[in-house]
Every structure is written in structure tokens, then in C-alpha cells.
Write a protein that binds this DNA or RNA. Structure first.
Lengths: 135, 135
DNA sequence: TTTTTACTTTAGAATTATTATAAACTAGAA
DNA sequence: TTCTAGTTTATAATAATTCTAAAGTAAAAA
């Protein structure tokens, strides 16, 4: 992923490229592997590794705008904090309870042989597999 | 499930059978099908359908004691509220985003053919399948 | 380039779900 | 019946998140 894409991400999310937003986008999208984070972990990084100031609200707003635009997905993890994922493809997760770490599993790595059909007038939107790990 | 079990549930959770706890246990366990709830939905029912008073803390404490004793399980659902399930067997869920409703799927209804092996020194604790529904 | 306007950031307040606290109450043992 | 340990309760505290309104800034208009 190239740096130039960052501005595309911002534009397509309806966001002006301010200092803060560029730093957030750079950190989230200018990387090769997918990345899992919480607002808290993102804030820690930003305040440590960049020179500019970040209000929490700015981080929340920017992350939500990216999510709304489809550049980030949200992962359901037991607990209070919301986890986000830069991988927006259909995929699954390992979750390590000891370290609270998420690991992506490519959709092709899991094959489901049998699945119940959706109830009444409903359809299946997507299937998420969550594999809890232990030591 | 019979009413007599309720006292067993309470005892095995280390709880004295107070008015409030008996009502909660009766509502949760004296039923044929599994039940999904949040603390809020449980409180709504209890205040409407019973004569005794419930402090929120009592509901939280009782539900957590049941969970700790293994009489309730927790379900990961996107959102702020914690969902509980009276089905403590290994099973899966449909989730209807429109109605915020959970529906149990028996473990035997889903067969997984291919699954990645756990990373490094980790083992698979359990596999949860979450099927999102749409209209 | 300057002005203007609409969008942004920010600190702090508000909200929501949950947990902790400490005083008044109660079940069950003695 | 009395006593003691466990309970309920209202309220405060905490944690994550969202809201707000004033001060700041990017980009369009002049």
C-alpha cells in the first residue's frame, strides 16, 4: 500500500486531510499486513510516535468515518473495548485470551460443510468464525 | 426444567435463596427453551412481572454468580451491552441485526471441514460461529 | 493573496454500561 | 430468639464512548 492512497482513503471517507487525520491514516493504512487495534492502543501509538496532538474525540471521529466508508471493520470481542481491523475482506479470527490479541484467518482457511438455513424471511448476511485460543 | 432445580442453581452458585434471587433464577431457568438476555432486558421483565424490588446491582451480581458457576454463558455481540445465554452447551448463533435478536444454533447443525491450526504454542479452546442475518 | 465559509480540533461535559461501597436488612446457624 | 455472615440497596465511582460549543484551519470565492 502506497502513501498516495492515504489521501484517497481520506477523501473517500469525506474527510479533509488535516495533520491529525493524515497521521492516523498513515499509521493504519500505510502497512503491508492487517492491523488490529482499539481506540486506546491507537492513541498510545499516536501520542508516542508522532509530534502532533490528538484529542480522543478526533481519533474516535476519524476511525468511525473510516469504518463508515468501509476502510475499517469492527470485530466482536468479549469485553468493553471495541476492536477495529484494517482487513475489510470477509475473514475470520483467532483470539488469544491471554494476550487479548486478534489474528486474522483468511476466508479460504476455513471451509464449512454444513450450515443451517436462515430462519423465516431472513437471509444469511455473513458468517464469522471466532476461534478462541488457550496455551 | 423443574422449579426444584432453581434452588440447586442457587446453592451451586454459592447464593442464598433470597426473594430477588429466586425470582431471577425462576425467570432464567424455569423454561423449556434457551433464553438470551441483557441485564437491561432482564431488569425490565423483573420490575414488570414481579412484585419485589430489584436494585440493578443485585441483578448484575446474581447474573455474574450464575455465570461464574457455569449456569449462564456470555455471547459476543457487537455493541455495548453484554448478552447472556441460558444455553451453556457448545453451540453457535444467528444474530438478527434488525431486531438485535440472538438465535441458538446447535453444535451439530454446523460442520467445519477445514480449519487452520493454532499458532505457535497455542491450542484451540473453542470455535464460535456467528451468522449475521439480513432481511 | 486575502477573505470567507464550512469543516475540524479540542477540552471538557454528558451518557451509558458496569462495578464498587457502605449502611440498612435478612436468612439461617447457634 | 439472638447473633452473624451474607444481602440488598441507593448512590458513587469507573470506563468507554459520544456530545458540545468555542477556537482553529483548509479550501473555495473574491
Amino acid at each position: 500500500m502506497k502513501k498516495v492512497d492515504i489521501f484517497k482513503k481520506l477523501r473517500s471517507s469525506g474527510l479533509r486531510p488535516t495533520k491529525q487525520r493524515v497521521e492516523i491514516a498513515k499509521f493504519l493504512f500505510d502497512r503491508d499486513t492487517t492491523f488490529h487495534f482499539t481506540i486506546e492502543s491507537l492513541e498510545n501509538h499516536l501520542t508516542k510516535k508522532t509530534t502532533c496532538k490528538f484529542a480522543l474525540a478526533t481519533i474516535y471521529n476519524t476511525v468511525h468515518a473510516f469504518k463508515k466508508a468501509g476502510h475499517l471493520s469492527e470485530v466482536d470481542v468479549r469485553g468493553k473495548k471495541t476492536y477495529f481491523d484494517t482487513n475489510i475482506t470477509n475473514h475470520h479470527h483467532f483470539y488469544d485470551n491471554e494476550t487479548s490479541e486478534l489474528i486474522d484467518i483468511d476466508a479460504s482457511e476455513i471451509v464449512i460443510q454444513k450450515i443451517p438455513k436462515a430462519p423465516n424471511g431472513k437471509k444469511i448476511k455473513n458468517v464469522e468464525v471466532f476461534i478462541n485460543l488457550k496455551n
